[in-house]
Computed example of a mutant assay.
Amino acid sequence: MLTASSLAILGLGIYAALCGISPFGTCRKCDGLGARITTDRHGRPKATGVCRRCHGQGKRLRLGRRLLNHSRDIHRAGAR
């Protein structure tokens, strides 16, 4: 039990450090290409437009960084 708890806390710490060092991750929808990739009727890939999730940037804000930014905004609003 102690080992599992310490591993979970260690994993959260590593993820928090990753979010602090590199707040952006590659988009899962377009794999960082920035374009929607579909296949034509022959099975060949083709780009059909700009990715809707990342808007063509290829990068998205990580969930942990989004939570950190939200909690920081709540703290600043309450401290006024």
Rank of each mutant, 00 (worst) to 15 (best):
C54Q: 01
D73Y: 06
G78W: 04
S5H: 11
K59M: 09
G43Q: 07
G78D: 08
C30E: 02
R60S: 05
T39C: 10
V50D: 01
C30I: 02
I9A: 14
G13L: 12
R62D: 04
M1Q: 14
G32L: 03
G49Q: 08
T26M: 05
A35N: 12
L68D: 04
G78R: 11
H55G: 02
R80T: 11
C27Y: 00
G56H: 12
R53S: 06
R80H: 09
I14T: 12
A77R: 15
F24Y: 14
H75S: 04
G11M: 08
V50C: 05
L67P: 01
L63W: 09
L33C: 04
G20H: 09
R53G: 03
L10P: 01
Y15H: 14
R72Q: 05
G58D: 00
L67Q: 05
G13D: 06
G32M: 02
I74C: 09
C27H: 00
A77K: 15
I21D: 03
G56L: 08
L33Y: 00
T39I: 03
R76I: 00
R65W: 07
D31I: 00
G78C: 03
H55I: 02
L18R: 11
R66D: 04
I14V: 15
I9Q: 09
S22Q: 13
A47Q: 15
G11C: 07
A4E: 13
R80F: 05
G20S: 10
G43M: 08
C30G: 02
C54L: 01
G56M: 12
L68M: 09
A77D: 14
L18Y: 09
G58R: 00
A17P: 00
C19I: 03
C51K: 02
R28N: 06
K46L: 13
A8N: 10
T3S: 10
L61A: 02
R52Q: 08
C30S: 04
P23T: 14
R53V: 15
R65K: 15
L33F: 00
